[in-house]
Design a protein around this nucleic acid. Structure first.
Lengths: 193, 193, 193, 193
DNA sequence: GATGAATGAGTCTTCATTCAT
DNA sequence: GATGAATGAAGACTCATTCAT
């Protein structure tokens, strides 16, 4: 399967190249020329795999954020953390710590993941998230049999977290992340009840 | 003061023209040519008033969102709503209702107000918000003398609200806005205590 | 002869596919990709049968116009029309009626068959026409023993007809085709003498 | 009026540059880059004056062919040639002689002036021809009071001439132009009656 | 013979910005 | 202050053609 393998490699190279340029220079300032140069393929090859810059951008962002969620889930599983509350808190903690170590990724997502795009990533087309989402919702419902709004509350938790930690980590506003974490976790528990 | 007036009018025309084009076609797809054409001024005139497209974009978004906050504040004052909790809830309700009537504005802000930009608007430079922010924080502290985290909780409330209503209003996700409002307000009260 | 047959089919498919695309989108806007896609063969296969787009275009136009001439000749033979004048008039009539029923073909030829190309089709290389041409010239000479300029007059008749009916059929200019036909036929008789 | 003049000059330069390249290399093989380079203006300037290559091509062809018609009319006027028949014959003779001296122009028009385009030039939009056309039609009618089809016959004369001389001049087919002229003129007189 | 992934030169087109008037 | 013609760098995208499989 030489060819199929080769195609996969090309696609990966383009994706990686694009990601690196996006976080270094921003999406707007990155040209397709640069992406292909960096990936070591011809310009035309780009169009064999992606529609245009916004297409590869979307795929890049999905790939990277999905990876992060997955790692977080694996982490709480490996740590053998039990109890829904603790699992959620620890997942979020894992993500926050990852962002602390990788400001570039946070900036990339924060700068580019507009609400409109976010929406698209979470809701529509992308099945990749469904496993994680469903897993969490199931756990939520098991944890609190009477909870009718598991999905909604999960949504609120994710939104609250993602929209606030950006400022906290990058600007220590309104608090440094370590201090903010305490308050955030308290509120999350509050939402779960 | 004919000249100064005239200048002000030109500036306003450009701002309005830009806003209309931005919501209709998106920032990316709008050119300075179109902005000046629509404003009825020469292309070169643009550069007498603004640095570049991103400059006028920023000013546009700030102007529009500031306007909204101000209206909300005026509304609760005029309605003579007392009590901090009710004032906050009613302000947010006012804003949500405005967005329901003006999806275009919501989309515009949602599509363009990335976290990075938001951050800039809220934290940095723009004094325009400080009055409102300070007013609210003062009220918060008066309401709950022991509350040490008024600023932080306000921040959380704003972030939670703005990041969730986008999907609710435009996509009925995870709930229609009317249903979601109940849950949101409950949580806001929860945050305030 | 499986293979040879298969090859012939591929060639025909490409020719048909090209013709359909050419009349639908124009030569310029049709790519080889589309031609092969539509023909159900791989892109590389195209180059096994044709030089490039202009090669297949030429073949397409020749095939289609030759077909038309041939049909016209068969028609006058089947109708058992005697007398040179009547045979010519009826052939031209047949062709005009065909174009009336198939504006697409007329447009295709009209839009693409520049004088330079026409010239090439008629004079140079393409033997396919010679039978028809020779048949007609022979008939002409038999009809009018003294006529020295059979070839030239035939040429004039064809040119006059083809260059005027385009406008008449497609734009009713300077007359609708039905009205124009009378005048045209009169002139043709005039030319024949 | 420095600016307006300058603009006119730029436009003319582009038109001339385009024409020269078109006759030298063909329309297809000429790029806008080359046109602007040759005209001594920046690439963007092209788009200030023309839509795209086909726009300037059309204008080029119209300009050149109009010029020719005009010259022919001036010629017969200056020569003080009387009588409609003679005026027409002499105009056509003038045009044929011009083409003999300028094969490039003939090739350019012949290669590019497809029937579809020709149609557009003659019928639609271009008023420039109307003066000439009207002048000739009036003369025709005056010459032959009973002639009802002046317009149509003029049309036939022009079409017959233009479609046949191409081959005659460039390929001596079916006759050299000097020999062909006699037959052509005879037929034209025939059409006029 | 057939395939279709890869190529990269070639071209169009846009648009922010400048500057002479 | 205002204008808008001119610029040309920058970038997107196409597509005929090749060639390893």
């Amino acid at each position: 399967m030489k060819i199929a393998e080769n195609k996969q490699i090309k696609r990966e190279n383009l994706l990686t190249s694009a990601y690196n340029l996006f976080i270094r220079k921003g999406v707007h300032a990155t040209s397709i020329d640069e992406i292909t140069d960096n990936a070591g393929v011809a310009k035309g090859t780009f169009y064999l795999y992606f529609e245009d810059k916004w297409d590869i951008f979307e795929k890049t962002i999905i790939e990277r954020s999905h990876l992060l969620f997955e790692e977080a889930l694996i982490y709480v599983n490996n740590q053998n953390i039990k109890g829904f509350k603790d699992r959620i808190i620890n997942m979020i903690d894992y993500i926050i710590e990852s962002f602390k170590d990788n400001n570039e990724l946070l900036k990339f997502i924060g700068k580019n993941l507009s609400l409109g795009m976010y929406n698209k990533v979470i809701i529509d087309e992308y099945e990749q998230y469904s496993d994680i989402k469903e897993t969490l919702e199931k756990e939520f419902k098991e944890y609190n049999k009477k909870e009718k709004n598991a999905e909604i509350k999960l949504f609120m938790i994710i939104e609250l977290t993602s929209s606030t930690i950006y400022n906290s980590i990058l600007n220590d506003f309104p608090l440094s992340i370590n201090d903010y974490k305490k308050i955030l976790f308290e509120q999350i528990k509050n939402i779960i009840k």
